[in-house]
């Protein structure tokens, strides 16, 4: 997987305050969740990626361009959706998107045509002709998303794209992000505090804390439990089935009425379970491999950082 973003030992100081403290980060294609507690340096990192602030030291390349020297080239290829409730005062929705397209060098007529297309894609109907000051928070959120993608960027940086959206709109937004990544090959950095969003769409996760990247791994690996197990719901007596499993060399424990837990989640364990169930004439209703929750991973990483600091 080619690296779209490569940062090496990036340090950014604001006066005496060190916002980024030697960030090493490599991000490839797909959707990457950028997580971190408040004040972790996420916003500063985004500004560095966009070339909006000069780094104190370190090197970085985004889409092959140097973050220090080729900021304009980076911003031409990147779509950024800010977290702040920002808008262009006095313009209608369609005018805002058209302006965003024009600033990214699309010709005037094409900017208007594409603006309408993108607003359709983002689910903004006739409201597009209203001034943005009259929009609800959710509408402005969708409008900022439309402005971020109108120029067909290669990389999308989305800062809290689902905050302020109702559950239905949130799902639609995540679905759009998924379409852009899976169908159109856009790389996406999803900066959010909403961990279910990350679990729903992200391919990998980077956790930033104290101005450093503490963890960077595929989501699949992060969710693997350190003590793998399989939870089974059975239609018959769980205890007798558990005894049968133990007799065949599996480790097992009854954890409730018709529910039991088998330690290990390898293919062999799964095959054995189904074979034994067939022999014992036990109907398995559910087989759920256990996973670590992203919350646990996140909290553990942040705690480790605090522990290291203290």
């Amino acid at each position: 997987m080619p690296a779209l973003i490569e940062l090496t030992q990036i340090i950014k100081d604001y006066g005496k305050f060190r916002a980024l403290n030697g960030v090493d980060l490599t991000i490839g294609e797909g959707i990457t969740g950028l997580l971190g507690p408040n004040g972790a340096g996420k916003s500063t990192l985004i500004k560095v990626l966009l070339g909006l602030v000069r780094v104190t030291s370190g090197e970085g390349r985004v889409l092959g361009h140097d973050v220090q020297k080729e900021a304009a080239a980076i911003r031409a290829k990147v779509g950024y959706m800010p977290e702040d409730d920002c808008y262009m005062y006095g313009l209608s929705g369609i005018e805002s998107v058209q302006v965003a397209a024009r600033l990214s060098c699309l010709p005037t007529t094409e900017a208007l045509r594409r603006g309408h297309e993108i607003l359709d894609f983002c689910g903004i109907g006739q409201e597009r002709y209203r001034n943005v000051e009259t929009y609800s928070t959710g509408m402005r959120q969708k409008l900022r998303f439309a402005m971020a993608i109108v120029h067909d960027p290669e990389l999308l940086i989305l800062d809290e794209p689902t905050s302020g959206l109702d559950p239905e709109e949130r799902e639609s937004m995540l679905s759009r992000i998924g379409v852009l990544s899976k169908k159109f090959g856009k790389a996406v950095i999803l900066c959010t505090h909403i961990l279910p969003d990350v679990r729903m769409v992200c391919d990998s996760v980077a956790i930033l804390a104290g101005g450093k990247v503490r963890l960077m791994a595929p989501l699949e690996d992060l969710l693997k439990s350190p003590n793998p197990e399989v939870r089974l719901d059975v239609a018959d007596d769980a205890e007798s089935f558990c005894e049968a499993l133990v007799r065949r060399g599996l480790q097992c424990e009854v954890i409730g009425n018709n529910r039991l837990r088998v330690f290990g989640d390898s293919t062999e364990v799964a095959d054995s379970i189904w074979k034994i169930a067939d022999e014992e004439k036990v109907a398995i209703l559910n087989q759920i491999p256990s996973q670590s929750s992203l919350e646990e991973v996140f909290l553990q990483t942040v705690r480790e950082k605090r522990h290291a600091d203290s």
Partner: peptide, 11 residues
Amino acid sequence: SRAFLLYFSRP
């Protein structure tokens, strides 16, 4: 309206 980020995130 904090529009600066909308402007300057463009080239």
